[in-house]
């Protein structure tokens, strides 16, 4: 065998080897590209499907149904007191929020009196975000039950009953619809089959979500948020701490020289004669 021939054979073998290696490399590259493509498609499809599905699942910011007598451009607000009262107290509260409970138990006799005297109208925004951080559904179901009570014309009384019977924040008693219905028995005329159905069917669930979404977009971050004629008064107005006496003083100052409103009964029981704070009913075991 000549040198030349041997060299030629080796060259051919090398070339074949190289060609095979190149082919394998190409196949590996193609495989990698295909896997990368599949990964990209899976991720893109998941995100697109997610956005579409969540868009369909999310409740509208303008509720399709709201409790009777609610006001505001989306009917998200429950007003209590004379519509033509000279001052407006705006209150954002979550049924499960302990600070709201303590605010209500201290201030509700005073607030009720100011309403009945035609001095203020209170605009309640019943928000429901504590369920998000603590889990459960007491904020949402409680807010819905308050909507049902508003629909039946008993918001103020039921609202006071709920806060007097508020459980510990971490306890989700209001997540039980039966508890909400049982508490309605303390409000004369509220515990009707309509009210029970409204609570059990979570009838104003969409409205509750819309109220919360409105709060989400607001600049307020905690509850209770309390504004007197748009100015924050909780826990302080300027340097002055809020107290029942100070609240009356501030309202009277704001109302000076203005005509008082004409409160209707709105199916509510009259305000207590004393401004003494109410005690918390021990939650039933």
């Amino acid at each position: 065998m000549s040198e030349k021939n041997r060299e030629g054979k080796r060259n051919a073998r090398d070339k074949m080897k190289e060609a095979r290696a190149a082919e394998e490399a190409k196949a590996r590259r193609n495989k990698k590209l295909a896997v990368g493509g599949v990964v990209a498609v899976v991720i893109a499809a998941a995100v697109v499907v997610g956005v579409v599905v969540q868009n369909q699942r999310s409740k509208p910011e303008t509720p399709t149904a709201a409790p009777a007598g609610t006001v505001g451009d989306k009917n998200l607000v429950i007003p209590v007191g004379a519509a033509n009262a000279p001052s407006t107290l705006t209150v954002y509260e979550d049924p499960r929020c302990p600070a709201c409970g303590s605010f209500e138990r201290t201030f509700s006799p005073t607030v009720d009196q100011l309403e009945d005297a035609g001095k203020i109208v209170v605009n309640y925004h019943i928000v429901s975000f504590i369920d998000r951080s603590l889990g459960g559904s007491g904020s949402k179901y409680g807010a819905n039950a308050l909507g049902c009570a508003q629909d039946a014309g008993h918001f103020r009384d039921y609202h006071d009953v709920l806060y007097r019977n508020q459980p510990e924040e971490t306890e989700d008693s209001f997540g039980s619809k039966q508890t909400l219905i049982d508490l309605a028995k303390q409000v004369p005329g509220l515990d009707t089959p309509e009210f029970q159905a409204c609570v059990n069917d979570n009838e104003f669930g969409g409205w509750v979500s819309a109220v919360q979404q409105d709060f989400d977009k607001s600049s307020y971050k905690s509850t209770p948020t309390v504004l007197l004629n748009g100015e924050a008064v909780y826990p302080k107005k300027g340097d002055e701490q809020i107290s029942p006496e100070n609240l009356v003083k501030w309202v009277d100052a704001a109302n000076q020289g203005k005509e008082l409103g004409t409160p209707g009964s709105n199916g509510q029981s009259p305000a207590p004669s004393s401004t003494a704070a109410e005690s918390n009913n021990p939650p039933s075991p």
Binding site: V39, V42, I43, A45, A46, V47, V48, V49, G50, V51, Q54, N55, S58
Partner: peptide, 13 residues
């Protein structure tokens, strides 16, 4: 809305 599904896609892959 999209982020949780991106996370779920990563979990699946």
């Amino acid at each position: 809305w999209g982020l949780p599904f991106l996370e779920l896609a990563l979990a699946l892959l």
